[in-house]
Each structure stands twice: as C-alpha cells, then as structure tokens.
C-alpha cells in the first residue's frame, strides 16, 4: 500500500495548493496600496474603505443577499416536498418525470437556463401581461428553480438513509403522519436542510449568467456588478470584496465544523 498512498498524497496537496494559492493571492493583494494590483507598494487597507464607500456596489450586495435569502427559502421548501415525494411515496405517476426535472438543472449550462427563462418571462408578459417588469422578482424565480434541484439532492440523500422506523415510532405513539413529519423527521434532518439552504444561498449569490439574462433595469446583483468591473480589468476593490467573502465563508465553515465536532466528542464521552 505504501507507494500509492504517497502518490495520491502528493497529488492531493498539489491540488490543494492549486485551489488555495489563487485565493491567497487575492487576500494579499487586497492590502496592496498600489492601484496596479500586481505591483506591490506596501500595506494598506484603503481599498476596504473605498469598497464600503462604493454605494452602487453596496446596494448590489444587499440586493443579492435579499434575492439569495428568498431563493434559498423557496428552494428548501420545494426541495423538501420533492424529496419526500421521491423517497417516501414509492411508485407514483410522474415520478420519473420529477426525477428528470430535478436532475437536469444540476448540469444544464447556465446560458441555456438563462435564455430559456428570459424567453418564458417575455412570452408571459406578452400573453398574460405578467410579470410587468423583469428584476429581482424574476431573478428570485430563476434562482429558486435551480436551487430546488440542488436542495432536493441534498435533502433526499439524507431522507433516503433515514431509518423509517423513526416515523413509524412517532405514528405508533399517536402522531398523525403530518405531525410525525414535523416533530420527528424535520428535526432529525435539520442539518441537511441547513446545508441545502446554504448551498442554494451561495449558488444564488454566485450566479452571474442567469441573472444577466432575466434581470431588468435597476436590478443589478453583486455578481453582475463584479463581472462588469472585472471585464474592464483588475481592480483592488474587488480584491477587498473577495477577501471579505473568503473570510465570511471560512468563518461559517469553521464554526459549523467545530460545533459538530464538539457534539461528537460530548456524546462519546457520555457513553463511556
């Protein structure tokens, strides 16, 4: 077993360096005082100041967070329903179709989703007179749609491995199926719901292509804003923004990991 372990370990750490060095470079250069991103001219935090003074960008941040919040909520609700249908109802008419509808958005190129949804909205306005205007509302629908697919994958894989006897025990003790689901199943799969929500949230925060298609006047989200600024070349403000995003994501991940580890240790200690 010795040589392969060494080979895959080398590849692993090489891959990790590949994944993390670019992010590290973003962080370092966000503290560069020079406007030319790659020329080092001493430490400075002025780009953070400029970032927070950029009202357009800050407004886009809030818009994006709002859209991501509601998309994630919708995606988790729809994802729970779809997962229950796919994992708990056995065979039913339309099951295979629901499978396809959940699996396809996972791989469908963004340009196709974006274009087709835009054409749908335009046709709807044409025929129904609704939605009158494209904007955050249409972005919410688009993001909730592909978020649902991802949320369903996360939630249904948890539901699938969940021992059925939990629900049966609850019903055996007098709970109706709905009550059993709310009081027993949901709390048990809560970690999966949280990760599904976070996944849908970050996917929404990250999307530039679909949002570009379906957004309308005045509804520029953060990625759209970043994309247009990046196309013009590197900007230290974006580095500062990137550093903040990396910081927040790392902190959330660290806290989540620490909490789960502490729980594991506590249970182990109690048993012994």
């Amino acid at each position: 077993m010795k040589p392969p372990i060494r080979f895959s370990s080398v590849m692993f750490w090489f891959g990790m360096a590949f994944l993390y060095l670019p992010m590290l470079s973003l962080v370092i250069y966000s503290f560069n005082s020079s406007r030319l991103v790659t020329v080092w001219a001493g430490w400075s935090t002025k780009w953070y100041g400029e970032l927070f003074r950029d009202e357009g960008l800050m407004a886009a941040v809030w818009r994006s967070l709002e859209v991501a919040f509601w998309s994630a909520n919708t995606a988790v609700c729809l994802g729970v329903l779809a997962s229950v249908a796919l994992t708990r109802f056995g065979r039913f008419r339309g099951r295979s179709m629901l499978h396809s509808l959940v699996a396809a958005p996972l791989v469908m190129p963004d340009v196709i989703i974006g274009l087709s949804l835009l054409l749908l909205f335009v046709s709807m306005t044409d025929v129904l007179g609704w939605p009158h205007q494209r904007g955050l509302f249409t972005i919410w629908i688009a993001h909730a749609t592909f978020g649902t697919a991802y949320a369903t994958v996360v939630i249904s894989s948890r539901l699938k491995e969940l021992d059925r006897s939990f629900v049966e025990a609850a019903m055996d003790l007098g709970a109706t199926p709905v009550k059993a689901f709310v009081q027993v199943t949901l709390p048990i799969i809560m970690p999966a719901l949280v990760s599904a929500w976070l996944l849908a949230f970050t996917l929404s925060l990250d999307d530039v292509v679909i949002a570009s298609f379906v957004s309308g006047p005045g509804a520029t989200t953060l990625p759209i804003e970043v994309f247009s600024s990046v196309r013009l070349g590197v900007s230290p403000k974006i580095n500062a923004l990137a550093t903040l995003i990396i910081l927040i994501v790392s902190l959330v991940t660290l806290v989540a990991w620490w909490l789960s580890r502490r729980k594991l240790k506590r249970d182990k200690f109690a048993r012994s």
Binding site: S165, E168, A170, L173, I188
Partner: peptide, 29 residues
C-alpha cells in the same frame, strides 16, 4: 390507522428520537 391503535411497539433499532432526551422520548406518546 397506526396512530389510533391502543398498541405500542418497541422497534428493533429502538427508533429513539435522537433530537429528544430520554425524558422527552418517553413523554412523546
């Protein structure tokens, strides 16, 4: 329906609700 029968079952896996304490488990029914 199972939730209307005056019958209770002890499951092979016990199916104790993991998010509830011993007390809460016993009180559930």
């Amino acid at each position: 329906a199972p939730y209307r029968r005056p019958i209770n079952m002890m499951f092979q896996s016990y199916a104790l609700f993991p998010h509830m304490t011993v007390e809460q488990n016993i009180a559930y029914g």
